[in-house]
């Protein structure tokens, strides 16, 4: 595929991606921070629904022979260290790399600083990569997927895992109905802790 057609396709897919991210509200900082403080579960609902649908469609693509898998190599140390740092960044940014762009599109001013920080972080990593490579990023277990480990055909395992996720989502919805988590201004911000539990309200702890 030529670069031009790849770019046009990317733009078209991105518009759909961004439109759906905005409608899902998962780009809202209060949704992301609320999930990480375990008081709003919208992010987990959207994320696991995306994984479940992905399992079904990728399972079908593999079962029909239309496509193979494109998994990343498992490099345990890098996965753990990188994941921990990525998570810390997501909490402070109130965004993931993809939703940063959705925040910019929706109009949040601070997301431009997240973007600048992200580009700087990627650039610093690029310069350090030759040094980091031998200590952190080399070796690993290869493109390890669960179906290969268990010796079960990918589609069956994918459909089974998708069914498990759907069952989990049904339980999650019973526990925390999504409409109650959207918030009055559709930003996932729920009434402050004081209003919910007056006795437990911290009084000017000085933390910031």
């Amino acid at each position: 595929m030529s670069i031009l057609s790849a770019v046009l396709l990317g733009l078209a897919m991105g518009v759909v991606f961004g439109f759906v991210l905005e409608k899902s509200r998962v780009f809202e900082p209060a949704v992301i921070l609320g999930q990480l403080q375990l008081r709003n579960f919208l992010m987990l609902k959207i994320f696991l629904s995306g994984v479940a649908a992905g399992l079904v469609v990728i399972g079908l693509l593999v079962a029909t022979g239309l496509s193979g898998l494109h998994p990343k190599s498992a490099i345990w140390t890098a996965d753990v260290v990188g994941g921990l740092i990525l998570g810390a960044g997501i909490a402070l940014a109130g965004a993931c790399p993809g939703t940063t762009l959705a925040q910019i599109g929706a109009g949040y001013r601070d997301a431009w600083f997240t973007l600048a920080g992200g580009l700087s972080g990627a650039l610093v990593f690029t310069y350090l990569e030759p040094v980091l490579h031998p200590v952190l990023l080399a070796g690993g277990a290869g493109k390890l997927t669960l179906d290969k480990v268990l010796g079960v055909p990918f589609p069956w395992l994918a459909f089974g895992f998708a069914a498990l996720l759907v069952a989990g989502l049904v339980a999650l919805e019973r526990w925390r109905p999504w409409r109650a988590e959207i918030g009055a201004n559709a930003d996932g911000l729920l009434p402050p802790p004081e209003a919910r539990a007056p006795a437990a309200a911290p009084v000017a702890t000085g933390r910031a």
Binding site: A53, G54, S73, I85, L86, P97, G118, A122, L132
Partner: peptide
Amino acid sequence: GGFLMLAGARIADGCTSGHGLSGMAQL
């Protein structure tokens, strides 16, 4: 936050999209 996010994502070779949506959907 943005700096840590991308430094971490590049060390781990993926973010909530690449590892999350895509990696988990490929088991």
